[in-house]
């Protein structure tokens, strides 16, 4: 762990700038699998620039809640992101229990996005909102179990901030499994699944389908347009970065003495996660909706297993 603030803020700036790259990478990987050329990697930047310049069509059924959804979903990710140890450096805001704050802040954004969807009075958007609410509720225990496992891994009362994201996600598990603790290998698996759920990727949700009946996240934002849609897309990209950074935080060991090398390796790991998401999307089909609950239950069970095995050591 480097107590340097500069690399941390550089990583934060990088996250803000480079987050829209991740969907681009995913799309490129999917295109390559399908034997297509694919969209440019920078496509989301073009989209964002275009959307920010455009006007908006706002439904007459809606109220301020409709506008609050995109704004809050973006603002909450802005707030949650610097709580993470970005680029492998402890956050300057780190405190005991910041994982709770991060989870609940993201919950706030999700809550208002759900409300914004219900505000339009559209049956499709209600459908998406209902699914998002239910699956988010089921994903929460699994996420907490992951956090607790990581906290248990370095559990020591004498370490200050042992219940902080900055201690959990600075590379401890990447080496721990070599020391006869292979159960931590389950964590990347569970976190990857949670990443797919929270960011609505295949096999949970298909961001590219054109069937509103089967979508979750995309169907919630059908009525948003212009800057609102830009906010939502950007927030989604940042959220993907957030979860990729979680994964990168546990697979990249904190062994590099040069902070910039550490930052580069972490960023490369985040890009690798995007590639992995692309591969997963290419080789898997969307599961049926009732199976999602089972999938999340399975993720929770795996995380619980990892936690138990960590605790008895």
């Amino acid at each position: 762990m480097m107590p340097t603030a500069l690399p941390f803020w550089c990583s934060f700036a990088l996250a803000l700038c480079a987050a829209p790259l991740l969907p681009g990478i995913i799309n490129r990987v999917k295109a390559k699998f399908a034997g297509r050329q694919g969209k440019p990697v920078l496509q989301l930047y073009y989209d964002l620039a275009k959307l920010l310049r455009k006007g908006a069509v706002i439904s007459t059924s809606t109220t301020w809640v409709f506008a609050a959804g995109p704004v809050l979903s973006l603002a909450t990710v802005f707030v949650a992101l610097p709580l993470l140890p970005l680029g492998g450096f402890a956050s300057p805001f780190a405190f005991q229990g910041d994982f709770l704050l991060a989870a609940y802040v993201l919950g706030l954004g999700r809550f208002f996005l759900i409300l914004a969807a219900l505000d339009t009075g559209s049956a499709f958007e209600g459908m998406g909102a209902s699914r998002e609410a239910a699956y988010a509720a089921l994903a929460e225990p699994a996420l907490f179990l992951c956090f607790l496992t990581l906290a248990g891994l370095g559990a020591d009362e004498h370490i200050a901030l042992h219940l902080s994201l900055s201690t959990m996600f600075t590379g401890t598990p990447s080496l721990a499994w070599l020391e006869a603790r292979p159960e931590v290998l389950l964590l990347p698996l569970v976190l990857f699944l949670l990443l797919l759920v929270e960011n609505c990727r295949i096999p949970i949700d298909d961001p590219n389908t054109h069937l509103e009946l089967t979508m979750i996240h995309e169907v919630m934002v059908l009525d948003h347009s212009g800057p609102d849609l830009a906010f939502i897309h950007y927030a989604a990209a940042l959220k993907l970065w957030f979860f990729s950074a979680l994964l990168a935080g546990i697979v990249v060991p904190a062994i590099f003495s040069n902070p910039w090398v550490q930052l580069a390796v972490n960023s490369a790991a985040i890009a690798a996660v995007a590639v992995l998401v692309g591969v997963t999307e290419s080789i898997m089909a969307r599961v049926r909706l009732p199976r999602i609950a089972q999938l999340l239950g399975g993720a929770g069970a795996l995380a619980a297993l990892a936690l138990m095995l960590t605790l008895i050591r």
Partner: peptide, 9 residues
């Protein structure tokens, strides 16, 4: 920008 009010899609 040009904005308008319309019914839900």
């Amino acid at each position: 920008a040009y904005s308008q009010k319309n019914s839900t899609w």
